[in-house]
Design a protein around this nucleic acid. Structure first.
Lengths: 226, 226
DNA sequence: GTATGATTAAAACAAACGTTTGAAATAGAA
DNA sequence: TTCTATTTCAAACGTTTGTTTTAATCATAC
């Protein structure tokens, strides 16, 4: 466990991970069978159980392969921001960029499967498969804790509940940004479409910051104090 | 079609629709078996095929039952707005409210299953099941066409591509708003949570409008004209 | 009452599912 | 080479899947 990663190429292992990632995006977990995966990976049906133990373990491996790195990168950038600020509160826009920018940056990588994975992740946010939710919650625990804390500190005058919800809204916008316009607007006047991935990040960023900075809703509706 | 709705109660039919709706939210389409559905509905296994023909047809029926009404309501409100304006361009905030407000209004109805259905719908936006996507695209065609057109007219100085994307982002925020904070933030400092559904609409609305009105991103990145 | 059409019920269907098995193939070290 | 550990392979395992079938039950009109 503490030893170095295996020097073996694990060719089929990686082929299975790639195939599974791609198929999960397209058909979901339950909609993707072992035979579809091993077929697309040019591997034997038993290979998944041999290399990963079970289908559920494969799902976890698909996520862990990239999600851990993504969240580590996010934390590293937040660390850098805080170090540069030297104790002073951060600019909210920087925090938002550190969290959502890294995600979109990974989603822009069409060469190494980053885009595929981020589409899968976006799709899985709303997934309710029991152990996938649990796994994601654990995998995200530290990141959400740190970033929410940073936002709380950066916006001390804004109620925390409001920040929490807006962070949630921003996540939803990001998820849809990554999923793309595909399909839903095909029948509408789609001549306006422009899915240049180069432009997606600035597009999303200004939307997110606009939403984050929006005037607070009228609190007169309910009687709570928060 | 033009005749009056059947006077028969179709008791089991409705029980099946309710059970399927609830189970689809929790386990997805592929994760929900006919036996789970008929079991929860206290109906015989063959009842689904008798009343709907197939599982796929049942899925469509679950959506059609409520989505048609929701979109009709949306269109009716847009009609009303345009009639009141008498040819003048509409306020973007009103358009946004007409589209997303009706959805959230339906999502607030916990009594008649509206909340359950809207959670299913939010979950299904990212679903890629072939015929479900096709079905949703058709079901949404007129609505997106009308509302996007209204936004184009209301914001003539904003590039249409920008409006289209922001509409997409708003949809993502709404989807997550409806899905709720569940799970993902449990391990973070959740003491700030406040999921009073009464407050959700104003919360989301100010976020959406903030995003819609945000300054446009720097277009200097790419060389296109749009 | 009996006859008729709609609904429910229990049982079975082939197909597909995730997983396991035990032998064949492969690779690297001695 | 020979030995040993790893990986691949074809085949089969028992379940579960969506659907169909055939008979029983129900409601209602005559």
């Amino acid at each position: 466990m503490t030893a170095a990663p295996p020097t073996v190429a694990h060719d089929t292992r990686d082929r299975i991970l790639d195939a599974a990632e791609r198929l999960f995006v397209e058909h979901g977990f339950d909609g993707t069978s072992m035979r579809m995966i091993t077929g697309a990976a040019n591997a034997n049906l038993a290979a998944v159980n041999y290399h990963f133990g079970s289908k559920d373990a494969l799902v976890q491996a698909v996520f862990r392969r990239r999600l851990t790195a993504l969240n580590r990168e996010r934390l590293a950038e937040l660390d850098r921001l805080e170090a540069d600020a030297g104790g002073a509160p951060l600019k909210p826009s920087r925090i938002v960029e550190a969290f959502f920018g890294t995600a979109l940056h990974m989603a822009a990588d069409t060469e190494h499967g980053g885009r595929t994975f981020m589409r899968l992740l976006a799709r899985t946010y709303n997934e309710s498969n029991a152990f996938v939710r649990q796994f994601l919650a654990e995998e995200y625990a530290e990141v959400t804790d740190r970033f929410l804390g940073a936002l709380f500190a950066a916006l001390p005058e804004v109620p925390r509940a409001e920040i929490l919800w807006r962070f949630h809204f921003m996540t939803g916008a990001m998820a849809f940004a990554i999923s793309g316009l595909g399909g839903l607007y095909e029948l509408a006047d789609i001549s306006a479409a422009d899915d240049n991935p180069q432009r997606l990040l600035p597009r999303l960023m200004s939307f997110l910051l606009g939403g984050l900075r929006a005037p607070l809703p009228d609190a007169a509706l309910a009687g709570a104090r928060n």
